[in-house]
Computed example of a mutant assay.
Amino acid sequence: MPNSPERRRELAGFLRGRRERLSPQAAGLPSGGRRRTPGLRREEVAVLAGVSPTWYTFLEQGRDVRASVQVLEALARSLQLDAGERTHLFLLAHGEHPPLAIPEVETVDPALAPLLALLEPNPAYVTGRRWDVLAANRPGRALFTDWFARPPGERNILLYMFTDPAARERLVDWTGEAQALLARFRAAAGRYVEDPAFVELISHLRDASPEFRQWWSRHDVKTRNSGTKVLHHPAIGRMTLTHTVLHTAEAPEQKLVVYYAEPGSQDAERLGHLLPATGPDDPEQV
């Protein structure tokens, strides 16, 4: 139960523990001389979060009081919680995950970046919440496009699929692949219907692609990410590749996409020929 006594006691202990570890100086407050207990006082947390000291005291005592999403966000900021602690706070208080925190600038998760080189000769890349390509290994750039030779605003899977003529040549069943990609994107975009970055991308695609405009109006949704693709690469010919999508706990909105062929097959041999044509790796692009 989201508001059970056990959950309220756990929430009270968590808040108290986070409060006691945060010094006044770290919170931007004067120390106020000697303190009998470490960390912030309850009334200081209340002031920082913009709530009543009495209400916050009740919350930390485990009483039956309810905290809105806005108040929980204010408490998370005031107590300087990291992403994992913020999620824990919401789970204790509401029994559900918090709204997604959208970063101003999205960078590849450091835990994912080293994997890209280790996966060679298999093509692999990392996409962000809007399906922008954040990093790619050498075969991942050779298989489709050199993502980092494109302007920063065009390093996007949807833009490549619907606006780059090379995508229609590379994917043998372009229509089927484009429709499936769009249905998966629609499922992901449902979490960001008010995100200006998504609104801008969708508007751009509507203007640039009649197929996108027609299919977007169908509201098709698909959640399966793994499968096979038949591709035709101008340098190495036709291949049937399996692709799978992996997530990390630290950055769940980022996806590691890997393409591979059955070991010892002709397709696996062809993948091996992607590397010599790509040249030395760029550490900034992985």
Rank of each mutant, 00 (worst) to 15 (best):
N3R: 12
R8A: 09
R9D: 15
L11T: 01
L15H: 04
Q25T: 14
A27W: 14
S31P: 07
G33K: 02
R35S: 09
R35C: 08
P38N: 01
E43R: 00
V45G: 04
V47W: 12
G50S: 03
P53V: 04
W55V: 10
F58E: 11
G62D: 00
G62M: 00
V65P: 10
R66K: 11
A67M: 09
A67Q: 09
V69N: 09
L72I: 06
L72W: 03
A76P: 12
L79K: 00
L79F: 01
Q80M: 12
A83Y: 10
L89C: 02
F90E: 04
F90Y: 04
A93I: 00
E96L: 08
I102H: 06
V105A: 07
V105T: 13
T107S: 13
P110S: 01
A111L: 14
A113R: 13
A113Y: 09
L118M: 15
P123L: 05
P123T: 04
D132Y: 11
D132L: 08
L134I: 06
P139K: 01
F144L: 15
T145L: 10
A149C: 10
E154T: 12
F162W: 04
T163R: 02
T163L: 05
P165M: 02
A167E: 01
A167L: 00
R168W: 05
W174P: 08
Q179H: 14
Q179F: 07
A180I: 03
L181V: 10
L181I: 10
A183L: 02
R184I: 06
A188I: 13
D195M: 02
E200Q: 15
L201K: 02
L201A: 05
I202H: 11
R206P: 08
E211H: 11
W215S: 10
V221P: 09
K229Q: 03
G237F: 06
G237Y: 04
R238N: 07
L241S: 01
H243Y: 15
V245H: 10
A251R: 13
A251Y: 14
E253A: 02
E253T: 14
V257G: 03
Y260P: 01
E269V: 15
D281A: 15
Q285Y: 12
